[in-house]
Design a protein around this nucleic acid. Structure first.
Lengths: 219, 219
DNA sequence: ATAACATCTTAACAGTTCCTTAAGGTTTTT
DNA sequence: AAAAACCTTAAGGAACTGTTAAGATGTTAT
């Protein structure tokens, strides 16, 4: 799975390279949009996705994206936007980009959004975000879709996700989510139920022990 | 998308050229109204929009605009006026200009107004301002429409816009808009309500946390 | 200077969302 | 089959937000 990273900030490039390679993508980096476009149109390089910075020297992200679309490319584009204080800098999102992310961003959210784009284009990401779940500030991204969660639900999912694949006992959940508040053990059940309703049957009951986050609903 | 810039101040011409070209417009510059009108009526040049300075040597912006309209042209005209010429604004609009902007102006505001004009004429703006909102000195442009805001409302919207798509906690809003003044937390709610009344339901409540500016009302 | 107006904050009440508990039903274990 | 653990649903209350209005303060017009 080839990903082009078009970005002039070296620290971001290096971060992305490290993470993406670790996740099994092959990464090609470009410091300017011109070089990237040249690679695509002059040398016929193909990419499964493009991570494109909005502010670039010379041709910027918006123009580059428009250029791609005008020439019929439907490669998924994830736009990175910085929120600069300067008002005279032109910021904009081209309608041709598929998604955007504001710097500074969380790596896991970036990966989740990238995979969601690939999935939408019918390309299966072979190293999916563990369990396709990322905690966000409003709840969670589940298979690229935003799901709103309440405070408790979010915390509960967070603990389960941190221990994904492993069984978490009710005692541990009570301790980590309810911080030793004096509540009935049954609250866990209720919130698990609500979580299941929202994110689908990904929480497995391990009888007599606790709960476990699983990849998919096992039959 | 062709834009004519009729302006004798070179520094402004160069700024506009740079920005507009970067935004994908093709720009034709004229230092006098005579040359511009000649291009239109003698040589039949067509433009999708005209940015017209009010004070020009020879024929001025008002006269040029009236000339255009008298001859049946309905090209969108954005008039540039200097602060000292405030009184002439009315004249400018009377002559058939579609919108005006006072120098010195913000580039983002100019682009937003230009796009609003194009949109009104059924020409699609291909690089929409993110979330269709631009902060101006009197309030904000929302989908190209001028909305007057009070000081607090404006600051509040500004902070939300800077964090668009992300949740901003009430604490952060209090800190950034109210700079640590000793006020009740509820002032935020009240101003959010007022903002919603003015700009439409674009502010989403994240229960127990804060608010978030969203693209459209998610019903 | 005074009146008219705009803005900001607080307060109060109404409405909503969230959390917990309780109760009855279901499944699993013994 | 009985007991234990879990599922499901609903209700009450707590916490939070929405809405409105009034008073305080500042600003502009007469």
């Amino acid at each position: 799975m080839r990903v082009a990273v078009v970005e002039d900030d070296l620290s971001i490039v290096n971060l992305l390279k490290r993470v993406l390679i670790k996740e099994g993508f092959s990464v090609r980096e470009f410091s300017t949009a011109e070089r990237f476009l040249s690679a695509v149109f002059d040398y016929g390089e193909k990419f499964d996705a493009v991570i494109l910075d909005l502010m670039l020297p010379g041709i910027n992200g918006v123009e580059a994206c428009r250029f791609l679309r005008e020439r019929g490319s439907d490669v998924p584009v994830l736009m990175l936007t910085a929120l600069s204080e300067e008002d005279d800098k032109v910021k904009g999102l081209d309608s041709g980009a598929d998604d955007y992310l504001t710097k500074p961003f969380g790596i896991r959210e970036l990966l989740a959004r990238l995979r969601a784009l690939l999935r939408r284009r019918g390309k299966v990401s072979f190293t999916p975000e563990p369990f396709g779940i990322v905690i966000t500030d409003v709840g969670a991204l589940v298979d690229g879709k935003e799901v709103k969660l309440t405070g408790r639900e979010r915390e509960l999912l967070k603990v389960l996700l941190e221990n994904r694949g492993k069984v978490v006992s009710k005692e541990e959940l009570l301790q980590k989510v309810w911080k030793g508040e004096a509540v009935s053990k049954r609250v866990v059940d209720v919130h698990v139920k609500h979580l299941r309703d929202k994110i689908g049957d990904r929480i497995e009951t391990v009888w007599g022990v606790g709960y476990r986050l699983v990849e998919r609903t096992p039959e």
